[in-house]
Design a protein around this nucleic acid. Structure first.
Lengths: 155, 155
DNA sequence: ACGGTTTCGACAACCACGTTGTCGATACTA
DNA sequence: TAGTATCGACAACGTGGTTGTCGAAACCGT
């Protein structure tokens, strides 16, 4: 039994991520969010329940404030976010999630739990826990960075 | 010990993929390929050692022939591919990898093997094999599809 | 052998998402 | 109060997609 070639590892990891995200968005579409895209999820996480300015969102996503501004525009057009003037600072416009936007995040968390439960049914609880622990060990806290949306294409 | 929330799984999988790809390209840059991008790797795999037409590359990557044509243009500009007329069919222009392009694929395979060896040092050979086997089980053959390059943003 | 259909690559217009650079307005600070 | 830093907006551009159209070439059935 010879070891798998090294190039399989990234393909399997991407494949796993991709099947989860594809199934998330298929389910989100079924539950009232057909327009949500993977990158929107990262952007809405960057906005957070507190709200944030475009510049702050850009810093959290690891992109320029201009790019963040455009992303906010699209989220606004889709009804996931809204911009309000900050009374305490006339330069700032605070971006806040709408009820629709908060609903996406809440439903996404539910669906991800369901998907993990499917993996548990397929692999058993120990293997899933081991998978998570091993990935945590090699990836470290970098896994929880939000600057992953447009990472692949541009670099 | 309560289970991890479901949203960690995709973050860990993406994080693992990302660290591998980031380290691959850091190492490729060091070994004479500073211009290679993650998407170029998928495109060059689609071309293959045999060569292929833009239309065929598009089918393999799951994008339109126009998009594939633009990708080939960029690979050509970077010196990774070249286009030659097909003497047997005046409509076709066959895209072939240059020696420079073949070198990227060869070095990438080497580097991926090195990176897997690092995971083996960190986790042990059994855990890495189990990780691969578990992912193969839940992802199936979909892991080896090539249409992953621009998948995240557009969907 | 010829006419209809398919396939090839090219071109144009457009969208999503990123970049740099610039700008006026506002806030902060020495 | 003067200088500096930050905010959002705008413009121009790059990259990687899309759809639609087009002429040229190949294929295929009668």
């Amino acid at each position: 039994m010879t070891d798998a070639p090294g190039y399989e590892l990234p393909l399997l990891l991407l494949g796993g991520f991709r099947t989860l995200i594809d199934r998330l968005h298929a389910e989100l579409a079924r539950r009232g969010h057909p327009d949500a895209r993977p990158s929107h999820g990262f952007a809405m996480q960057a906005i957070g329940v507190e709200g944030a300015t475009a510049s702050e969102i850009g810093r959290r996503l690891g992109v320029s404030k201009q790019a963040a501004g455009k992303t906010v525009e699209r989220l606004e057009a889709l009804g996931y976010a809204e911009r309000v003037d900050d009374p305490a600072d006339a330069r700032r416009k605070v971006v806040r999630l709408t009820a629709h936007g908060v609903d996406v995040l809440r439903k996404s968390a539910e669906i991800f739990d369901d998907l993990r439960a499917e993996w548990v049914r397929a692999l058993g609880p120990e293997r899933v826990r081991a998978l998570e622990a091993d990935l945590r060990a090699v990836v470290g806290p970098a896994a929880y960075r939000l600057d992953a949306a447009g990472w692949f294409s541009s670099q």
